[in-house]
Design a protein around this nucleic acid. Structure first.
Length: 270
DNA sequence: ATGTCCACCTGCTGGC
DNA sequence: TGCCAGCAGGTGGACA
């Protein structure tokens, strides 16, 4: 379930296992996910020491002492399993550390990716070149959204899903943030005033922080071999709640557009 | 350029 | 019990 908060939680879960660890062995159980694995992945990572872990948008970054960074994306169904007791069908990549820990990258749908680039050239990574600001960083504010949205007739929901505008939001947290901000998902982005965009930015941050905290509270569970995570689903206000009562009493609605579902409250969101 | 749709892939659920 | 349609957190490319 990887949007920004889930990737953040994943990085926090991987850090105690990988930070400072030597990669003793790397096993590929197939040749690709969404793309082929880099052909020299094993050669460049085996024997290297992990010197840092970080997140950019929905990507996880693992830096080694050889000046390489492994960049992973979890797609729709990816997760890292920590110290699994057995290998599962969709464990595609397995890492063993010098301390005897094991990590398995499991991704049934294989929409994820693993790349390896030089750390110094991380800005050239194609997905990062035109990427927008981190929603939890200092660069996102209402004035920026106002500039970027100006004149645009596309629904604000579609704009927020565009990683070039804000990096790391996905379908769940866009639905949630728009509900918190009281903005209809279908509203043309260019027809939202600055004051409402202030509320939107505040809502985006609040929703993400709450989700990270919910994930962080289950970090102990993260280390379980089954990789189960608690996550944020119990706190969703509209996502996945079609037909249920919104806090205002109206029914939460769902609409499918372009193969994706939008959940919203037509009373609270205008 | 902008906006929309679809393909990629597997697994699960609910209806019949 | 089985089958089949519909749905799922993302991304990027192909359209009009």
């Amino acid at each position: 379930m990887p949007e920004l908060p889930e990737v953040e939680t994943t990085i926090r879960g991987l850090r105690p296992v990988l930070q400072g660890a030597r990669i003793e062995r790397l096993l590929l159980r197939r040749a690709d996910l969404r793309r082929p694995f880099p052909p020299d992945l094993g050669q460049r990572l085996t024997g290297a020491t992990v010197v840092g872990l970080a997140r950019r948008a929905k990507y996880g970054l693992i830096d080694t002492d050889r000046g390489d960074t492994m960049i992973f994306h979890l797609g729709m169904s990816g997760r890292w399993r920590v110290d699994p007791s057995e290998t599962l069908t969709h464990d595609h990549l397995i890492v063993e550390t010098g301390a005897g820990r094991t990590l398995a990258l499991n991704d049934p749908r294989r929409f994820g990716s693993v790349d390896l680039i030089e750390t110094a050239a991380i800005g050239d990574y194609p997905a990062f070149v035109a990427m927008g600001p981190e929603p939890l960083g200092p660069d996102l504010d209402a004035a920026l959204l106002y500039r970027v949205f100006e004149g645009r007739m596309a629904p604000v929901k579609a704009m927020l899903l565009d990683q070039r505008i804000v990096a790391g939001l996905g379908n769940i947290y866009v639905c949630e943030a728009l509900h918190v901000a009281g903005i209809a998902p279908s509203r043309a982005a260019g027809r939202i005033g600055l004051a409402r965009l202030e509320r939107l930015v505040t809502a985006i941050r609040a929703v993400l922080v709450a989700a990270i905290e919910a994930g962080g509270s289950t970090l102990r569970d993260y280390a379980r071999p089954d990789g189960e995570l608690g996550y944020f689903s119990k706190q969703w206000r509209v996502y996945g709640r079609e037909g249920e009562a919104c806090q205002c009493g109206a029914r939460v609605r769902r609409r499918a557009e372009g193969g994706r579902s939008t959940f919203w409250c037509a009373t609270c969101q205008r």
